[in-house]
Design a protein around this nucleic acid. Sequence first.
DNA 1: GATTGACTCTATAGTTGTTATAGAGTTTAT
DNA 2: ATAAACTCTATAACAACTATAGAGTCAATC
Lengths: 136, 136
Amino acid sequence: MIKIGELSKVTGCSVQTIRHYEKEQLIASAERSEGNFRLYDEVAVEQLLFVKHCRSLDLSLPEIRQLLGLSRSPGAQCDDVNRMMDRHIEQVEARIQELTKLNEQLRMLRRSCSNRRTVEQCGILRNLSATPVSSG
Amino acid sequence: MIKIGELSKVTGCSVQTIRHYEKEQLIASAERSEGNFRLYDEVAVEQLLFVKHCRSLDLSLPEIRQLLGLSRSPGAQCDDVNRMMDRHIEQVEARIQELTKLNEQLRMLRRSCSNRRTVEQCGILRNLSATPVSSG
DNA sequence: GATTGACTCTATAGTTGTTATAGAGTTTAT
DNA sequence: ATAAACTCTATAACAACTATAGAGTCAATC
Ligand SMILES: [Zn+2]
Ligand SMILES: [Zn+2]
Ligand SMILES: [Zn+2]
Ligand SMILES: [Zn+2]
């Protein structure tokens, strides 16, 4: 049985984050010591690593909660998991597209300044003042 | 002179957002009518569109405030504007890279489920339980 | 002139996933 | 006994909005 500081070191999640996950029901409520300190075992470490792995994939806390729910009802079909993953992948790809477009616009804007001028004549500021290309 | 609702329609910014921008000093404090309603002229419309354009490029409110400051001191050199733009572009590109990596991992994970199975045997959940590839 | 409806005002809370405090209690070591 | 290191809860901060409550303003209708 380890305390929260050690769990933090082992998993790489901050102490506050661990407490937050507990409050949000992403990990089980920890047992407590006599002095009311949280105590964790190996299972708790695994649970937290699962959550951390999901977070590294940018799954939201509600999404993770849903995954945990599904994994606790083993009779359930995979469809639900898959639907969520597909939706999530879609969102990530949409965001990539958005940012790529953004990046092009930013680079174009950046090119409109040839340095060493004063801000008064700056193409960047002038272009920013003009109406946006399209507000997507 | 138009009221805030009309400004909202003209610019496509919500009423609350306009009030928020005023509080955050991204647009000038509006004149007030007898009944304490905000009143805007053409200049105000332009100012708000500038801010909106910047936001559509994902510039943060502090960054926009900085741009506004620079554009108000016309003697200033372009260097500052450029430095900010470069930093911003860097961040956008870094985020694109991150998301691209993420997307690959998500797709790989998604492939590990062949549907119609029960969650118990699901490759997705199994792989999520395993230690992450790398926590970047 | 009273009432309705559409609009506006301020102030405050909620969103998301943490991070950072404050102030108090616990444990371990000296 | 005391100090250091840790833990506890509760609360605020971050970013950029969005949403709400409760009150006030204004124009038009009856
Ligand atoms: Zn998602
Ligand atoms: Zn320039
Ligand atoms: Zn930026
Ligand atoms: Zn599956």
